[in-house]
């Protein structure tokens, strides 16, 4: 949201003060149903939001973020809508396409099925964090060289997955690459070029 700051963790004091003042609510369990009822009674929704949000600290591409978010926000939506890191894509939102692939503590995962709050204290790497300054990561360069994409929408997920694939040691043959890259759907059908790109990076033997 444009009017939200990245560091929008509400002051702990204000939350406590609110809870103290609001005797009506402290008497009730803080379940969503309660909050809903609060909404029904037209209680100021900013208070309702305070109930629902919890603090979260994340490291994204080397930057630390102190956030306050609803538990229902996925890591994918947090990256795209809150942190404006739109390189990570939403293709299905159900773990069935791989467009949302990011690295969490170095491991590739589907960010659409990960609740953001489950990543407390973790380091997230997205496509925006892969290059070093102006120098492309070798996998990014290889994707360009081998034309491993067309529309480009699945590409960030493919590249994040490809880097992990090499690191995992699952890129030692074309058959392995194909199998271990099958969690990333490319509807334009760039698969053979993707395989060539990964194979080249694997064979170059450099650090990925």
């Amino acid at each position: 949201m444009a009017d939200k700051k990245t560091n929008n963790c509400p002051e702990k004091d204000s939350r406590r003060d609110f809870l103290k003042q609001s005797t009506l609510y402290t008497a009730l369990a803080l379940t969503p149903v309660t909050v809903l009822k609060a909404a029904d009674k037209k209680v100021d929704e900013r208070f309702a939001a305070l109930f629902e949000k919890i603090p979260l600290t994340l490291n994204v591409n080397g930057s630390k973020h102190a956030l306050s978010i609803e538990p229902r926000v996925t890591l994918l939506d947090l990256l795209r809508e809150e942190l404006q890191l739109t390189g990570t894509k939403k293709g299905c939102d159900h773990g069935q396409c791989g467009a949302c692939t990011v690295h969490v503590d170095g491991v590739r995962v589907n960010s659409c099925l990960s609740l953001a709050v489950m990543n407390e204290g973790k380091s997230i790497t997205t496509i925006e964090g892969l290059a070093t300054g102006d120098t492309l990561h070798p996998m990014q360069a290889a994707f360009i060289k081998h034309d491993g994409f067309q529309c480009g929408y699945c590409t960030p997920g493919q590249i994040m997955s490809a880097v992990a694939c090499v690191r995992e040691g699952h890129a030692k043959s074309k058959a392995d690459i194909r199998e271990y890259m099958s969690g990333n759907i490319c509807r334009c059908g760039a698969y053979p070029n993707i395989v060539d790109a990964i194979e080249e990076v694997q064979k170059s033997g450099g650090t990925v």
Binding site: G98, V107, R108, V109, N110, L113, A164, M181, G183, N184
Partner: peptide
């Protein structure tokens, strides 16, 4: 295990 899901999902 390797026949199931995808590498990403198996990591989670």
């Amino acid at each position: 295990l390797n026949a199931g899901a995808s590498a990403q999902l198996r990591n989670m």
